[in-house]
Write a protein that binds this DNA or RNA. Sequence first.
DNA 1: TTTCTCTTATAAATTTATTTTATCACACCT
DNA 2: AGGTGTGATAAAATAAATTTATAAGAGAAA
Lengths: 304, 304
Amino acid sequence: MKIRDLTYFSKLVSLKNFTAVADYFSVSQPAITMAIKRLEDEFNTVLLHRDQSHQSILLTPSGQQLLKHANRIIDEAALTNLDMASLKTEQIRFGLPPIIGNYFFPKAASQLAKTNLLDQLLVTEAGSSELLAALENGKLDIALLGSTHSLNNDGLSATLLAKHHFKIIVSPRSHLASLKKIAFQDLHNEKFIMQTEDFVHPTAFGALNKISCIDPQIIYKTGDIALLKSMIHENIGIGFLTETAITPQDDIISLDLTDSFQPEFLISLVFRQSQLLSQTKQNLIHQLTQSLGSYSSNTNQLGK
Amino acid sequence: MKIRDLTYFSKLVSLKNFTAVADYFSVSQPAITMAIKRLEDEFNTVLLHRDQSHQSILLTPSGQQLLKHANRIIDEAALTNLDMASLKTEQIRFGLPPIIGNYFFPKAASQLAKTNLLDQLLVTEAGSSELLAALENGKLDIALLGSTHSLNNDGLSATLLAKHHFKIIVSPRSHLASLKKIAFQDLHNEKFIMQTEDFVHPTAFGALNKISCIDPQIIYKTGDIALLKSMIHENIGIGFLTETAITPQDDIISLDLTDSFQPEFLISLVFRQSQLLSQTKQNLIHQLTQSLGSYSSNTNQLGK
DNA sequence: TTTCTCTTATAAATTTATTTTATCACACCT
DNA sequence: AGGTGTGATAAAATAAATTTATAAGAGAAA
């Protein structure tokens, strides 16, 4: 079994045309025919039925099975190339979602600057789910991620750094401003300014809606937390925000939720287990865990 | 990158000797030298330092990184071979731990016999953790597994079929025989007949010990549930057993535990996600879920 | 120090594998 | 029937890996 043959096979499944695959890899068409034949001979099976009323290729069960493994092997090979390349640079491709980057990460920044680690970070700002995907496919080395559930993802190592609460934030002029706390279901008539879908907030908010059997109105969605706060400050609506992002300077009122079951905002330090950690990366992880972690011993080693 | 070169490399790391690796694969020694050189050229790096006070080989960071990926690729390739072979037989390699096999699985057997599925099962009897390992490395297709925590294992699909309770079982002649229920910590002076370590019972028992801060005496360990029951019937000691394995014919008394946090005996139907399910396997899974499952909708699709 | 042994590297020859070129065969369409 | 698109085949050419034979280096032993 050759990786090259598997990539030919996999591409053939998606392009459904021997000639097109040959063009794609800049080889001649018989090279593809021969590669498939080699695989069929090796496993002593038929992988696919060709022509077949034409313009499409029909995978046999063997073909479907091989495809699954082929894609896994191809993915692993791609990761290998990325990791081997990444080893040659001292740069650390670091993922940082906006809220964590603005309100949580800075606590560690001065410490990182002292040890010259900050310079080495090549920061990607994006939503946590996008960053998670980037970690998995080798485009990032290390990331801080926000989530509502602990990250049990395949082959990733996730260390929980903090568990923050979601709060209800209102304008000082709001009729709720005098309260310290409130039950979520009492907000069913309120108008919300909500974060966009790349934040975990809509998910947590949706879960609370479901539990409380309410469906409050969302009058505006924004990815800009400063804008969200100022709209709430102007009393255009109320908000749902992790305490992570609430500072005294905001001049908004934050209320605790009294609900017994409520989602939490978990901040984790995450990296792929199949990536070898250079000394620099180990340093970064150590310093971040020290500066930011309240659960330092609580590493969640998942995978094999 | 060739899979063959990776296997040479991986073997070299474990044998630490080029000549030995060559012998192992029945090729000449320069073939190994060349394979390593090809990898080093491809990644433009040094993978290992040879000789080095001799009798050992020193992996560079690049070498360590490549080794991780190499082993993953080699494992995946081995799985591919197994799965492609397994596809040619209608036999289903089925894992069944003793308790589940004796007391839980029979509920589905007549139904399976009707559709001729029972004949196709090639049953392996072993402890759940051993079966789990066999699933992961492709030696089994499908298994029923007992566990105390839900199976969140990489790349496995686990469907919860039943949640059973652990009970305390005592002889009708025991001083506890008149009770309906008991708190675990009240058993600190009792003598237990315990299952061997291939059962989940010692784990669950250990967890209860820890929570209750007691350490009761274990006077005998056995892997034979019938023996365990008869020893308990003879009042030689008391037992800790999932209700799964308790039948009216046993003539023993079973007591509920009153503890608020107590481990549960979960029975799950598990298979590897990278394995293509033949029609027969899909049938088996469907029928087992129907006949045995009380949580039929509660499939835990994990992994990618 | 010299010599022997164990180990890995190198170079040329050989063998094996893969790809290309050229051509064929088949199905579908008009 | 003839044209077009597509995959298969065979022989030739090319590329890649392996073997054979030998060298080079490091320890160990004389």
